[in-house]
Structure formats: structure tokens, C-alpha cells
């Protein structure tokens, strides 16, 4: 078999805003008219994948980065962006049957896609998404593929064709793990500074044909995909209401201070 070190980077399209609006009737995110971007943590995953590829190439090995996303047809745009940032190939997993997937169904779909690819040695994911925020897809995917998973990697200390050494910051210490490949890791923003796209990357991204795999291509059963394959379902999602009460204190400065002090005391603040 050809000896190429293949890296898979899983990415997701998310709303490019911090002001997320929710449709109160359907309990889903309002996506219309909202600009979408690559999930910010995934940009570090792409960069790390490309850096590992470059490291491999510098030491004379062949390496390749493939970006994968599951989502509607318009998710193709983030795959093109991944190519402009140095990914070599991209695959879109898109099917109506994938809609409404929770983290489990998403991981299962990704697993089936990864299984279709040959020769992959490393999977990199962002540590969590901006919209779902669970951080579950990475470990679930690794579990389904029966490979080691190291979450929250902050640096790749060493990588060869056989092993990877990863450092991460725990609450009060650094931890270093060495695991056999293939493996999966998730990364946060402390691992690198993602590059600006290159002109050749942008031109390649524009012209690249991105294959779309549907549920049949992944040989999946409809009951295992999307909403029907999901163990969790969102019953209600809402923006919490913050109620602020403002009381104006009047009178002379001494009276104001006195009243403020009394009030703070009542509230057990002082």
C-alpha cells in the first residue's frame, strides 16, 4: 500500500455570531440570514493537521490532510476554506437523513465516512463547537473506531508513523501522553495560531471538486442517522432572561451612603 500519512480533520459550520437567535416554536437555531463560519476551534484543528503534514514532508515522508464535515449543501463553503488553509482534499457528508443528529448520530456518521477512507493515521477535531458546545463528538468517534483519544491537546511533542506524543493542560498540571497510531485528538486555541489562507490555496479551493457522500454511500441505515439515530433530543432551548432592577438612591451624599449601606447589609453583601 502507498505509504502516505493521512490526517483527517473533522470540522463544522456554525453561525458566525455570538448573538444566537432561537426559534421559540421549533426550538432550533435561526440560521437564515446569519453568516456561517468554520467552528473557531476547528480552525486550530486544520492548522495543526497542516503543520503535521508539513513536518512530515520536511522529514521526507508523504502526508495528506482531508477535511470532513457533515451538514447541508452550503457546508461545502467551509470545506473550500479548509483547502485554502492547506487541506489537500475535502469530503462533504450530506443527506436529509443526517438532519437533526445529536453527537452520537454525528459521530456514527463520521465513523462510517472514516471507515471508507484508507490509510488514515490521525484524526483531529476542535475540542468543542461554538453552537452545540458539548465536546462529545471527538471521544465518541474515537470510541466507535476503537482508537485512543486525547482531548484538549495543547501541543504535539512528537509524531512518527507509529506513535504520537501529546501534551495538554489539565486543571493544575501538564499531562503528556504517548499513544499508538491511529488515534484521535482534539485541540483548543492554545495549540497554534492558524495561518492566513494562501493565494494558491484559495485558487485550489475554488477549482477543487468536493465529493458528497450520502447515507447510501456510507452504507448506513436511516434509523441510525440524524434525528432517528439520536439518543438525545432537544425539548426546549431558550435564551435566559436577565431581569435587572434599578433603584435610584436620592438625598444628600451622607443619606445616600447610609441607605446604600443598609441595602447592601440586607442583601448580605457587606
Amino acid at each position: 500500500m502507498e505509504n502516505i500519512f493521512r490526517i483527517i480533520v473533522c470540522i463544522k459550520q456554525v453561525p458566525g455570531t455570538t448573538e444566537i437567535k432561537i426559534n421559540p416554536e421549533t426550538n432550533t437555531l435561526v440560521r437564515e440570514g446569519i453568516e456561517t463560519v468554520i467552528n473557531p476551534f476547528d480552525t486550530y484543528a486544520i492548522e495543526e493537521g497542516v503543520r503535521i503534514k508539513e513536518r512530515m514532508q520536511q522529514s521526507g515522508s508523504e502526508a495528506e490532510v482531508t477535511a470532513i464535515t457533515m451538514g447541508p449543501a452550503q457546508s461545502e463553503s467551509i470545506l473550500r476554506e479548509a483547502i485554502s488553509l492547506g487541506a489537500d482534499k475535502a469530503i462533504l457528508l450530506s443527506d436529509r437523513a443526517f438532519a437533526g443528529a445529536d453527537t452520537w448520530a454525528t459521530a456514527l456518521t463520521l465513523k462510517n465516512a472514516v471507515k471508507k477512507l484508507e490509510g488514515w493515521r490521525l484524526i483531529i477535531l476542535g475540542k468543542q463547537t461554538l453552537d452545540g458546545d458539548t465536546g462529545q463528538v471527538g471521544p465518541e468517534l474515537a470510541h466507535m473506531l476503537n482508537i485512543p483519544f486525547i482531548g484538549y491537546a495543547s501541543s504535539i511533542e512528537h509524531i512518527s508513523g507509529q506513535k504520537i506524543t501529546v501534551k495538554r493542560l489539565a486543571e493544575d498540571r501538564y499531562e503528556t501522553f504517548e499513544v499508538r497510531l491511529p488515534a484521535a485528538i482534539s485541540v483548543g486555541k492554545d495549540i497554534n495560531v492558524p495561518r492566513v489562507p494562501s493565494l494558491r490555496g484559495k485558487l485550489k479551493a475554488k477549482n477543487e471538486t468536493i465529493p458528497v457522500l450520502n447515507i447510501a454511500d456510507l452504507s448506513m441505515d436511516e434509523k441510525d442517522a440524524g434525528l432517528s439515530g439520536s439518543y438525545t433530543q432537544v425539548i426546549k432551548i431558550f435564551t435566559p432572561k436577565h431581569v435587572y432592577e434599578v433603584k435610584m438612591i436620592e438625598g444628600s451624599p451622607d443619606e445616600q451612603a447610609e441607605e446604600l449601606f443598609t441595602k447592601l447589609k440586607q442583601l448580605n453583601i457587606v
Binding site: 489562507p197 494562501s198 494558491r200
Partner: peptide
């Protein structure tokens, strides 16, 4: 370095020598 990675030094250099 970032400008270099973005291919901006390649612009005016002929393609035969790694440029654009």
C-alpha cells in the same frame, strides 16, 4: 513569514521558478 506563506512573494516571479 506569514506574507511568504500566503504566496505574496510568488506574485511577480515566473511560474517556472516557483512563482505565480
Amino acid at each position: 513569514d506569514e506574507i511568504g506563506k500566503s504566496d505574496l512573494f510568488r506574485l511577480f516571479i515566473p511560474e517556472a521558478y516557483g512563482g505565480m
